[in-house]
Simulated scan of single mutants.
Amino acid sequence: MQQGDAFVVSVNDRVTRATAVVPDLSFPQSFAAAGRVTADRINPGDVVNLNIFENVKDEPLLSVAGERLSVLTDVQVDDQGYIFVPYAGRLKAAGRTPDQLRAAITKELESQTPDPQVMVSRLAGDGSTVSVSGGVTAQGVYAIERPTRSLLGMLSRAGGVSIQPAVAQVRVTRGGTTRKVWLQDIYENPKADIALRPGDKIVVEEDRRAFVALGATGTQTRVPFDTRTLSAIEAIAQVGGLNTYLADPTGVFVFRNEPASIANKVLGRSDLQGDQRMVYVLDLTQPMGMFHARDFVVRDGDTVYVTEAPYVQWQKTLSALTGASSAADSLRSASGG
C-alpha cells in the first residue's frame, strides 16, 4: 500500500527474505592471493647486524690485536639498497637474503684476511614495515618478521584488539585499494588472514552502523549496533523493550530508504527506480508476529518506531481537555467571575 510518497508494507516471510541484506565485507582477490613476504629478504631501509670472525690473532683486519670477532651493529641499508662494510666496500644488500649477503661479504674479505667467517642477521627496519592503528593495544609501525607475516600475527604484535570482537572491523589499505573485513571472519576463515606487504596500513575500528529508536520504547536515541546482524526483536530488546504502560505491540514500524532492487522484490514490481521510502509494519500480537520480528533484519540508518496504545492516546487527549478546563476555571476565579 502506498501512502503519499512512501510504501507501507506488512512484514511477512517473503518480505523478511527480500530485505535480509547484511554488509558483505571481504578482501579483494589481489589481497587474498598475495604470497607471504620472505621475512629474510633484505629491503632498503632495513637494519642488519654483522658478526665477522677472523682466523688471525695478532693483526686482525677489522678489530684490535687479540680480538678475533668484530661486531657491526645497526647497519642500515640505504635508499639504493647498499651497505658499507670496512675493507669490503659498498655492497648491494637489498633483494638478497642474509645468507646471500654473507657470501658477498665473505668473498670481498677473504682476499685480505684468511678464512673470514661472517654472520648476517636482519633486524626490524624501515623497509618492510606496516602501520597498525585504531582499536589495538599498542599502535605503531612494525616490521614484517617471521611471526608477523600475516594480518593476525601483526595484530597480535600490536597487543591485540582492544574493542569488542563482535563489532570490530579490520581495514587494510594497500596502494590505492582499501577494504575491510569483520575481525571474527579472520578468526574463522584462514583465507581472510592475508599476507602483509610493506607499506600496508591496518586500522582496527568499531562498527559504525546505528539505528534510531523512537516512540514507546525504553529509550529514544541513536543506538549503535552491538552485533554483526540485528533483527527487529533484538533492536527492541537493545533499547529496553516495549514500554509496558505505553506501547502498542500491534504498531511497530521500521522506516527505511530502500534500494530499488529490494523495493521491487518486496512490492512484486520491476518499474521502481532509485531509493524508495518504505514503512515496514510488525504486529507482535499476531501468531507469527514474533517470528517475523525475529527474522526481519534492521539495517544501518533505520528508524524503529513503536506507537502508543489507544488507551494512552485517550489519556493524553483527556489530560489536554482537563488541563484546558482547569486553566479556564483559574482565569474565571482570578477575574472574580
Rank of each mutant, 00 (worst) to 15 (best):
Q3K: 15
A6E: 13
A6S: 15
V9D: 01
V11Y: 02
D13W: 01
R14Y: 04
V15N: 09
T19P: 05
A20V: 10
P28Y: 06
A33T: 10
A34E: 12
G35Y: 14
V37G: 05
T38Y: 12
D40E: 15
N43G: 12
N51R: 15
I52N: 00
E54M: 01
V56H: 13
D58S: 12
L62H: 12
A65H: 03
A65G: 12
R68T: 14
R68G: 12
L69C: 04
V71G: 05
L72A: 05
V75K: 01
Q80R: 15
Y82D: 12
Y82C: 00
I83Q: 05
I83V: 15
F84C: 00
A88R: 00
K92L: 07
A94C: 09
A94S: 15
T97R: 12
R102N: 11
A103R: 06
A104R: 03
A104M: 04
E110A: 02
S111C: 07
T113E: 03
D115K: 13
P116I: 03
M119C: 06
V120T: 01
S133D: 04
S133M: 10
V136M: 02
V136R: 00
V136I: 11
G140Y: 02
G140P: 04
Y142W: 11
I144Y: 00
G153K: 04
M154G: 03
L155M: 07
R157G: 12
G160T: 01
V161Q: 01
Q164K: 14
A168N: 02
A168M: 03
Q169R: 15
Q169F: 06
V170K: 00
V172N: 04
T177L: 08
R179K: 10
W182D: 06
L183C: 02
Q184Y: 12
D185E: 08
E188A: 15
E188H: 09
N189I: 08
P190L: 10
D193F: 11
D200C: 02
I202Q: 06
V203C: 01
V204P: 06
V204D: 06
E206G: 13
E206D: 13
R208N: 13
R208Y: 11
R209I: 06
G215D: 08
R222W: 05
F225W: 11
D226S: 14
R228A: 09
E234Y: 07
V239Q: 11
G240T: 07
T244M: 08
A247N: 11
D248V: 11
G251E: 08
E258G: 01
A260T: 05
A260E: 15
I262L: 11
I262V: 15
A263P: 07
V266C: 08
G268N: 06
L272S: 03
G274W: 10
Q276K: 13
R277C: 02
Y280M: 04
Y280E: 01
V281L: 14
V281D: 07
D283V: 05
M288G: 07
M290N: 04
F291D: 11
V297A: 02
V298W: 07
V304I: 13
V306K: 00
E308P: 00
E308L: 10
T317I: 14
A320Y: 06
G323E: 01
A324T: 13
A327I: 10
A327L: 06
A327M: 07
D329A: 14
A334S: 08
